[in-house]
Structures are given as structure tokens and as C-alpha cells.
Computed example of a mutant assay.
Amino acid sequence: MGLMANLSKAAVGRRVAVLTAAPLLFGLATPLAAQAATTAVESTSVSPSTISAGEEALQKVTLTEPAPAGGTVVALRDLNEFEDPNYARSTGRKVTVPEGQRSVTFPIRVQSEDTTTVTSLEASANGTAARTAITVEPPDWREQVVTGFWVKQQYGQAIALTGTTVTGTVQIKSPAPVGGLAVDIRNNPVWNDTAYSAPYVVVPAGATGATFPISVSTDQNPRYVQMTADLGNDKATSSLIGTPKKFSVGTVREIRNKSGYWPNYGVVGLGDIWHPFGAVIKLTSDTPGVTVPPELQLSSSELGRTFPIQVDPSTPIGTKVKITATWVLGPAPVTTEITIQD
């Protein structure tokens, strides 16, 4: 009995010891969890707070205390009605304050406008946030402006196969400042996804030009997109036609029956079909008053060619027209249907 009593007392003692130790462990863990959860954003600032369009600025985010193990991820966003694509790309929409540090500083870019703009920026983490603002002024066109923008062309026409990458080039009037100068690149209209590039290209400090990649995509027919390069005070434009990897025919833009708009143009794409001796394309229209050149002769290095479409003003709006392209000694003919616009 004495031995059993001693064993029971020992067991009870161990249980008491475990129960007594548990609060001590929780007491050590709770402050660490609370510390990680309560790391807050104290402030954010931009330097310089006013820049000329395209210039680089530095944003700083400061926490209320040093970041815990693994660092603190801070979400970044602009407060414009529509997201600033330049700010999103330059920051990746987030920044990490390294472990043991209270702040981090990083470069930012914001888009250019034709008037002075103020963009509010927000940094947030763990339910806390701080805001700052950056002012962007258009440069004096006498000192800095985009002087050139083009896509690598063949025979005066920028035509590229879907799935390929072509080279764009921008030029500016004066050498870029320290940090480089970001020139905005946009599709017009913006939802036209025939071509894709980063929202800006940086001309390196001291340089007056830069090149950048443009990815090409399209659907079953050739598609046209106009692109702009902009520093806020003026725009330079270039264009690109994306063609599918097959013989195709389409139009560059809407086809109209009156002058005062852009000229009416169609486009033939040869796709990725080998044509070492060139190609002869016959064109026909099924509608009186809508005429196309009877024949196009393309060289072995051409991927396609645009052609004029003449529309008599008497052709009623809404008329549907079929234009057929026939590749002599090539694949089967292809046809596109267009509707005459007002």
C-alpha cells in the first residue's frame, strides 16, 4: 500500500508539473504571435514628391516596429479610378520590409498625363495603412519630348506572325536623366490585344533611345493595332498588323463609304507558309462599287501586304461585302466579309 501510494503521488505530481508548465509555454508564445500580428504601417513617403513625367522617384514605407522573422509584406496600390499600370509594374503591387528592419525604400514609376496630376499612393499591412502622394508634371516640349517611335518594319509595313516577338524603338529629344526616363507605351484602343508590351520602356540615363519587345497575337484573321509612345506632352504613333499562321485576308480598320476618315485598307497574310519564290495573290470583291487591286505580288521575305479598298459613296451603309484572296499555286482561297460603316 505504501508503494502504491507513493506511485500515485508521483503521478499526480507529474500531472501537476505538466499543467503548471503549460501556461508558461503559452505565455511565451502569445507575445510572439501578437507581435507578428500587430506589426503596423506607420507611414509612407515619396522623394521627390514632384517629378517631371517619366522620371523615377523613391517611395519609403516605415513600420511601427522592426519586421518579425520572414519580414513584413506591405501591399501597394494607387488610388486612381483606374489602376496606374506603371506603378503596378514598377512595384509588383507589394514590397517586403526585411526581418529586423523598420523601413524599406524602393523605386517607382507612374504614368504620364498631358496635365499636372497628383496620384495618391497607399501602403497597407495587417489591417493598417498609410498614404502619400506624388505630383507629375508634363515636361516642357522644348526640352524633352518623344521624337520617334516605330516597330521594325518590312517594306514599310509592320506585319508579324501571331506568337512571335518584334522590336519597338523609341527616341527622345534630350538625354535621359539619372534613373532613366520611362516612356509610356499604350495600345489604341487600350483593349486591342493584338500587341503586348510592358506599359513603359526606360531610356537609360544619358541615352536618347531604347528598344523593347512587343509580343504579337491575333485570331483567325489579321488584326491591326495602333500604338503610342508618350511623355505627357505629345504622342508618337506606330502601327502593327498581327496575322495568323495561315493564309488569311482581313481589313485594317472599319470600311467606310465617305472621305474624312482614314483610308480604307485590307490586308493579306501569308502565315508561316514557305514561299521561297514569292507569292502572287489575286483579289476580288463581290459587290459593285467596292473595288480592290486585281493582283498583289509579294517577295519571299514578306509575311503579308496591305491593299487599298475603294468604296463608292453610293454604296449603302450596312452593305455586306465579301473580299476573296486567291494565292496562285498556293493554298485554297480565303474570304473575309466586311460591312460598310457610316
Score class of each variant (00 low, 15 high):
146 V>F: 11
163 G>R: 07
200 Y>H: 13
123 A>F: 01
170 V>P: 08
151 V>K: 04
157 Q>A: 09
222 P>S: 11
111 Q>I: 06
229 A>K: 08
150 W>M: 03
174 S>N: 09
212 F>P: 06
108 I>H: 00
133 A>Q: 15
164 T>R: 11
196 Y>W: 09
188 N>L: 14
187 N>Y: 13
183 V>K: 05
181 L>Y: 04
221 N>A: 12
225 V>Y: 05
146 V>W: 14
215 S>P: 00
187 N>S: 15
141 W>L: 11
110 V>L: 09
221 N>W: 02
186 R>S: 04
126 N>H: 14
184 D>N: 14
140 D>I: 08
135 T>M: 15
118 V>N: 15
174 S>A: 13
185 I>E: 01
172 I>T: 06
171 Q>S: 12
229 A>S: 07
163 G>A: 07
183 V>S: 02
190 V>I: 13
217 S>V: 02
204 P>G: 10
194 T>L: 05
154 Q>Y: 04
175 P>S: 00
212 F>T: 08
117 T>V: 14
135 T>F: 14
201 V>T: 14
117 T>G: 02
229 A>C: 08
159 I>A: 02
224 Y>T: 01
179 G>P: 03
184 D>L: 01
171 Q>H: 11
140 D>F: 11
159 I>Q: 09
229 A>D: 12
172 I>P: 03
206 G>Y: 05
165 T>R: 12
225 V>T: 15
189 P>Q: 10
213 P>H: 11
165 T>H: 01
126 N>W: 04
186 R>P: 00
151 V>Y: 06
206 G>F: 06
132 T>G: 12
215 S>C: 02
112 S>H: 01
124 S>C: 00
165 T>A: 11
149 F>D: 07
207 A>V: 03
155 Y>L: 06
173 K>E: 11
129 A>P: 04
123 A>S: 14
140 D>E: 12
153 Q>S: 13
175 P>Q: 04
197 S>H: 10
149 F>A: 05
201 V>R: 01
202 V>Y: 09
181 L>Q: 09
122 E>I: 00
158 A>S: 15
183 V>T: 01
217 S>D: 14
168 G>T: 05
212 F>V: 03
125 A>Y: 01
113 E>I: 00
154 Q>E: 13
198 A>P: 02
163 G>W: 09
206 G>E: 04
144 Q>M: 15
207 A>P: 10
186 R>Q: 04
192 N>L: 09
218 T>Q: 06
163 G>E: 08
141 W>F: 04
205 A>D: 10
112 S>E: 04
139 P>V: 13
111 Q>V: 03
218 T>D: 11
130 A>I: 08
221 N>E: 14
131 R>M: 08
185 I>C: 01
157 Q>G: 03
166 V>P: 08
120 S>Y: 07
144 Q>R: 14
182 A>Q: 08
194 T>E: 10
162 T>C: 04
169 T>S: 05
179 G>Q: 05
215 S>F: 05
139 P>C: 12
226 Q>I: 04
171 Q>D: 07
129 A>R: 05
151 V>A: 03
160 A>F: 13
146 V>D: 03
177 P>K: 10
219 D>L: 10
153 Q>W: 00
229 A>V: 06
127 G>D: 09
133 A>I: 02
228 T>D: 15
121 L>R: 05
169 T>W: 01
173 K>I: 00
160 A>I: 03
110 V>P: 10
177 P>N: 11
185 I>V: 07
166 V>R: 13
195 A>P: 07
